[in-house]
Amino acid sequence: MSLTEVNVTINGKSYSEWVEPRMLLSDFIRETCGLTGTHVGCEHGVCGACTINMDGLAVRSCLIFAVQADNCEITTVEGLACSGELTALQKNFIECHGLQCGFCTAGILMSITDFLEKNPQPSVKEIKETLSGHLCRCTGYEGIVKAVEKTVQDNNKEVLQRS
C-alpha cells in the first residue's frame, strides 16, 4: 500500500495530506505540518515529550500513526496561547522555574492542561502522579510541581473574584 489520505485539524487549522501509514503522528505534526513545538524524545511512549491533545485527551503522539488521526481535532503546544497571550500555566512555568532546557516542557504543558480541566483541585500526590508520565532532567520536578500548584491557586482566586 502506498499513501493514505489524512484530514486533521491542528490548532484550528485544517490539514489534508497523503502519508505513509507507518508515519508517526509526532513526525507528521513536526515534519509535514511544520509544528516543531511538539518534541520527540524516546519514541516508545516513556518520556512524554511528544504529548499532544487529541479529541480532548492528552495522548502520546509517538504511539499513534498519523493515519489514525484522520478526522480528529488536535491541539499542540502552539495552540495553547491565545492571541499571543500565554496561559496561566505557561506563565507559572516561567515564574516558578518549571523549565530549563525546555525539551520536556511542551509535553508537560499538554498533559497538565488536560489534567487540570478534568481535576481542577488536585492534591500534590495527584500532580506528581500525572508528572510521572514525563521525564525532566533539568528541574528535579520541584519547579514544575510549584508551577502547577500556583496555577490551581490562581484559578481558585479567579473563581472567588468572579463570585
Partner: peptide
C-alpha cells in the same frame, strides 16, 4: 497502568 496519557489511549 502506565500513565494518564497512555490510559487515555
Amino acid at each position: 497502568i502506565g500513565h494518564l496519557q497512555t490510559r487515555n489511549r
